[in-house]
């Protein structure tokens, strides 16, 4: 009981504090590749703090939907993260079928942020919302197929067990499937978090963007919430990848957490490397890569069931 509470407290604390660091790591890696010094590792925290204290400018066309968007963009990944086991086989909330709920909570967040974007009546933001939702239609099956591989492998319908320590025993027998899922999920991670090659978080050419163009009109604390929510979503996907590759349980709580934090940071470094070495895809080619992600997980499933 006490251990459970400790687990939950640690889980929530890490979920709330660690995510911005990933953005810092990515920024640092990209700066190193470009031969710059780059911003400090903790810069995203300063940014969030600064945004929280700023005033905001709001478009006259907007309504309450515009205000609700950033809130839901922050709340939904946080809630979804409660289902994911960060260490051992323990998640604060877990029940049969929570994997579906995780996917649908992210869907709810997307629904709200896209509606908020359309609330401004800007054609740029409408464009971004349309692209975000269109690509999500293809990304959701990819994420889902990967989860189904885990369901079939572990025979469980709870994320806590599916990504728990029992998964380690399946790596020797079903390694090929799991590697395919890993690749597919990495693509989904890049897409869902609007990273290169799908989207460039740093560009200022609104016509080419997906996610970033949806938040053009948000400012101050609302924009801070969006940034924070995005980093939590990134952390969620990174945690999924880490648990997929290293579902270890060493017996020591500290070591488990160290594995997770280290793993997540490695994922951030990998994203930074991809962003520094790969060019952005043409918008019309984006669906091809997502379909490839679907096929990868689908093939993983086929390998498993052959």
């Amino acid at each position: 009981m006490l251990l459970n509470i400790l687990h939950t407290v640690l889980h929530v604390t890490v979920a709330l504090t660690l995510p911005p660091l990933l953005l810092g790591v990515i920024g640092k890696v990209k700066a190193l590749f470009a031969g710059r010094v780059g911003p400090r590792l903790l810069q995203p925290y300063y940014d969030l703090f600064k945004l929280a204290r700023k005033g905001s400018v709001i478009s006259q066309t907007t309504t309450w939907v515009f205000h609700l968007g950033p809130v839901m963009g922050l709340v939904t990944p946080l809630l979804a993260l409660l289902f994911v086991p960060l260490v051992d086989s323990h998640a604060p909330v877990s029940f049969n079928g929570d994997l579906i709920l995780m996917v649908y909570l992210l869907g709810l967040g997307r629904f709200c942020t896209a509606s908020a974007a359309l609330d401004t009546g800007s054609s740029f933001e409408g464009m971004g919302a349309a692209r975000e939702l269109t690509f999500a239609c293809l990304a959701e099956p990819a994420l889902f197929l990967g989860l189904l591989v885990l369901v079939k492998l572990t025979g469980s319908m709870e994320l806590a067990t599916m990504l728990g320590s029992s998964l380690a025993g399946h790596w020797p027998t079903a390694g090929a499937s799991l590697v395919l899922v890993l690749l597919s999920w990495f693509i989904v991670l890049l897409l869902e978090n609007s990273r290169i090659p799908f989207d460039d978080p740093n560009t200022h050419l609104e016509l080419t963007m997906i996610h970033e163009v949806m938040v053009l009109d948000h400012s101050g604390p609302a924009f801070g919430m969006i940034l924070y929510g995005a980093s939590i979503k990134l952390f969620l996907f990174a945690a999924l990848l880490v648990r997929l590759v290293m579902p270890v349980s060493t017996g020591s709580l500290a070591l488990d957490w160290a594995v997770l934090v280290g793993g997540v940071l490695i994922v951030a470094v990998a994203i930074g490397v991809v962003e520094s070495t790969v060019a952005r895809l043409r918008m019309t080619h984006v669906p091809l890569l997502i379909v490839a992600a679907c096929l990868l997980s689908g093939f993983g499933l086929v390998l498993l069931l052959r």
Binding site: Y104, A114, S115, L133, T134, E140, P141, F144
Partner: peptide
């Protein structure tokens, strides 16, 4: 997986 896609389409339609 197809059902997940139906969900994505529905979100697109209703947004």
């Amino acid at each position: 997986a197809l059902l997940a896609m139906v969900g994505g389409f529905a979100a697109l339609s209703f947004v």
